[in-house]
């Protein structure tokens, strides 16, 4: 049951059953090798894999700012989310980046690219499963936390874009 092949087989059967799980969709990703996090799919525009040369680095910017990228007729800034949250990052000097592209709801709406360690897919769950307890979460995440989703042995933090945006305010050129 636990081997990957058997799990794929199980998912293939689900694929052709036209059922959709109840609740809102969330994108699941890994911040770094240790921390997995969730973001609501409501603000997600797309995800992309970009090579390093596609991103133009910005001079005199903190390490959390990777650079500017042109994608889908739009230019937007790509941030290293782990660094932004004050965690250790694995993205420094990497050849390619996995990027989640978000669009702010408030006017003027802007595009933001968040580079993460690994995209893991979309999951759905209802709001009643979300808990507000922040005890088991890394302290650096507490400022931008919408809640946590309890899993089998730990909790997955759910990040909130609005609170993340506040962090951008702290960014200033070196």
């Amino acid at each position: 049951m636990s081997s990957p092949a058997s799990r794929i087989q199980a998912n293939l059967t689900e694929l052709f059953e036209a059922n959709i799980a109840p609740g809102n969709a969330y994108i699941k990703f890994q911040l770094n090798s240790e921390i997995t996090a969730l973001l609501s799919m409501a603000q997600v525009q797309k995800s992309l894999i970009a090579k390093a040369e596609q991103i133009t680095p910005l001079p005199s910017m903190p390490r959390s700012v990777i650079g500017m990228i042109n994608s889908g007729d739009r230019v937007f800034c790509v941030f290293d989310l782990a660094k932004l949250l004050g965690l250790s990052s694995e993205l420094t000097n990497s050849q390619q980046y996995q990027i989640i592209v978000l669009q702010t709801v408030n006017e003027p709406s802007i595009f933001i690219g968040l580079a993460i360690s690994q995209l893991q897919g979309i999951i759905r769950f209802t709001r009643d499963k979300v808990q507000s307890s922040v005890d088991d979460v890394h302290p650096s995440l507490s400022s931008c936390l919408a809640g946590v989703l309890p899993e089998a042995d730990n909790v997955i933090p759910i990040l909130e874009l609005e609170r993340l945006l506040k962090l951008f305010a702290t960014i200033s050129p070196n």
Binding site: I20, A25, V44, S47, I49, L119, I122
Partner: peptide
């Protein structure tokens, strides 16, 4: 990445894209 993007595109399609959303999500899984 494709499945995520497909899911996002399906979501934009509203009511009609719901079936596609499911497929996209499954592919993602």
């Amino acid at each position: 990445v494709l499945s995520i993007n497909a899911s996002v595109e399906a979501g934009r399609a509203g009511e009609y894209g719901q079936g596609f959303t499911i497929v996209a999500e499954q592919v993602g899984a």
